[in-house]
Design a protein around this nucleic acid. Structure first.
Lengths: 219, 219
DNA sequence: AAAAAATACGAGCATTTACTCGTTTTCATC
DNA sequence: GATGAAAACGAGTAAATGCTCGTATTTTTT
């Protein structure tokens, strides 16, 4: 028995059974929890296994190494991020008065932090590993693309490069203020969020307009 | 010989000789280099010792643990930060037209990053250890105080709380954009820095005024 | 010069942590 | 029910890392 089975024979792609797929999900759930609490680098594989209620050996039955756990988590982040921002940054919202648009988006982002803390850690965390940086960058690029679309609706004649820059900087501004806001008590958080909305209004207003945008379908 | 000398007998505060003080400085220099390269958490004590050209044992002759190396570095950061910002954020600069004021400060900050990379890592790095967070927070508070003073000169009748909030948010905005800018190529860096100046102008202009401020000493 | 204190060394300890291995148990397929 | 693959286990390994210890050398003090 136990023929040099190095966990990963190519040529037989491992036929996962139901049980296995369930375990994978459990391990990823556990990883998400632990990462939300201590960050990715500090999340030990043993801790993740323990949280999932499996042995370290079982964890490595499904993931070749720690990085692959991150890879397994990635789709969750990108998907939930995509869904979230698709529903918040659509054509309809884009046409609102800028102040209201910003209010909605900033508040939504604050709510998202509470809802998906692990995502938050990834998005705002330190770029400890190159892989992690890459992942975070991808997520950010996705959000930037949505924001850019919103700006494009408000001011269609702006060149793409300018739109992209506006989106990137807007997100960076929020990224700068948010950690402060979310760590503070409720009163100060409200203060800071109000400020960042004001700052974005001052930054974006002159470029993409303050008012609502008419939904003219004349093209 | 070697009587249970546990490196740190109270009652005899260790009389450092010249050689020792030199070593301490060398070790701190080395620590600064290594930290600038890999960050504080990833900087191993053995690597710092090796870089300083001393044995691990010697390092621990002067520092009881890794955290005390950080403590030894702290005054350098706070002092160089204080000197730097004192010379950049003075009453004279505060009275310049806002656009020029911002231009100077943002450019100075970019230059500072190149000049003191370890400081940069501390200031923008991850809040990995509680101690590190505390230190970074202290440095930031110092800068915020200077920025607040500048705003106070431009708009003396603003309440202190408002000034403080403006300063904090301004710094947070810069903190959000800077990592992006400094990691990018020269062209994009210039773009991003121009944007952040514009954003700050839009944010602060309505509150602290766009123009130069007269140096009226009538009070 | 002698004693004491400070400095210096570097092999090695203790701990942590990603990961393995040999084995046993559960499941799917015949 | 027999057989083999997948799943599960958990003690154990190798490497990294903060730090110590016994000892040797240099400097200061007496």
């Amino acid at each position: 028995m136990a023929p040099g089975r190095s966990q990963q024979q190519r040529s037989a792609p491992i036929r996962r059974q139901e049980r296995g797929r369930r375990r994978i999900a459990e391990i990823l759930d556990a990883a998400e929890e632990v990462i939300a609490e201590v960050g990715f680098e500090e999340a030990t594989t043993n801790a993740i296994a323990a949280r999932a209620g499996v042995s370290p050996g079982s964890l490595y039955q499904f993931f070749a190494n720690k990085e692959q756990i991150l890879d397994g988590l990635l789709p969750r982040y990108t998907e939930s991020s995509r869904d979230f921002w698709n529903s918040r940054l659509n054509a309809e919202v884009a046409r609102l008065p800028l102040a209201e648009l910003l209010d909605r988006v900033v508040e939504a982002m604050a709510a998202f932090k509470v809802q998906r803390p692990a995502f938050w850690v990834l998005f705002h965390g330190s770029p400890a590993s190159p892989r992690l940086t890459e992942v975070a960058e991808e997520v950010r690029a996705g959000i930037a693309a949505r924001v850019r679309d919103v700006f494009a609706i408000r001011e269609p004649q702006l060149p793409d490069e300018r739109l992209e820059l506006l989106a990137t900087v807007s997100i960076a501004i929020v990224r700068g203020v948010f950690p402060l806001a979310m760590a503070a008590d409720e009163y100060r958080r409200a203060q800071l969020l109000a400020e960042v909305k004001g700052a974005l209004l001052g930054y974006l207003g002159p470029v993409v307009g303050y008012g609502a945008v008419a939904d003219d379908r004349r093209s």
